[in-house]
Amino acid sequence: MTDIRYLAPRTLDEAVAAFAAAQGAARILAGGTDLLVQMRAGVVRPGLIVDIKKIGEMTEIVEPPEGGFRIGAAVAGATLAEHPRFGKVWPGVLEAINLIGSKQVQGRASPGGNLCNGSPAGDSVPAMVAAGAVVTIQGPGGRRTLPVEAVPAGPHRTSLAPGEILVSFTLPPRPAGSSDAYLRMIPRTEMDIAVVGLGASLTLQGGVVTAARIGLGAVAPTVLLVEEAGKALIGSRLDDAALEAAAAACRAACRPIDDKRGTIAYRTRVAGVLLKRTVAIAAARAQGGN
């Protein structure tokens, strides 16, 4: 029987110091909706838990003077949903985060936890990738930033160095005519894990796509930024040929496995279907629809 120590520091420096000192025996606790489940299942047995929810920077939503948003890594999905402006600017990121679990889970689950858990099927990650989010990381060696797609390193692994904590997500300012969307395929309607998840972020000017990013989840060891799909859309009026080219790029990017949650053939095919559907929603939103 191992004893577990619990710390809830008020500052990031304290948190990093404690986390780094424990040398791998520690775990960061945000909402705990992954961590506690994994502890119960005996998958992880931390000697120290560092709760980051008491640290101001990790739980706030800021609109910096230069535009965009900075979301603390431990902000709960429900808190983000209540923000008066975030969902208007980033409806796709918000819907992805809000898809996580149920009402109860939303009260706790955070985008930082979703990303650092390292699941290729994490719902908010493809939407964050599409959004072009940049994460701020702090560790014993100081602060650094990374594009969000550089964080996952494989199933349940991240590129965070020992002792590093994910601090926040920075989402860039949005030009007019921009929006985003996220869709996932799950066999059930709720309480399920994405078989494929796809985030799309677009900017349209006069009906022509001027910027596009596609994030694709659950079809490879990590969530993917599908650059070819974005390129296929840019410059187009989202005509069938452009959409099919983008869908083909998504299918080509898939490196899925056959498992209890879906077959290779199914996942690959669905990636293309979701590309078209998600882009259609993002485009309608960008053009003033909902």
Binding site: P187, R188, T189, E190, M191, D192, I193, K260, R261
Partner: peptide, 28 residues
Amino acid sequence: LSEEYLYDRQGRLENAGFLDYRMPVCSD
């Protein structure tokens, strides 16, 4: 539509929990 027992090659049940043994939820 959704429930089934899935076994691996060693004859072990692969979906011994409510996440992957898909019973309908209310919204289904």
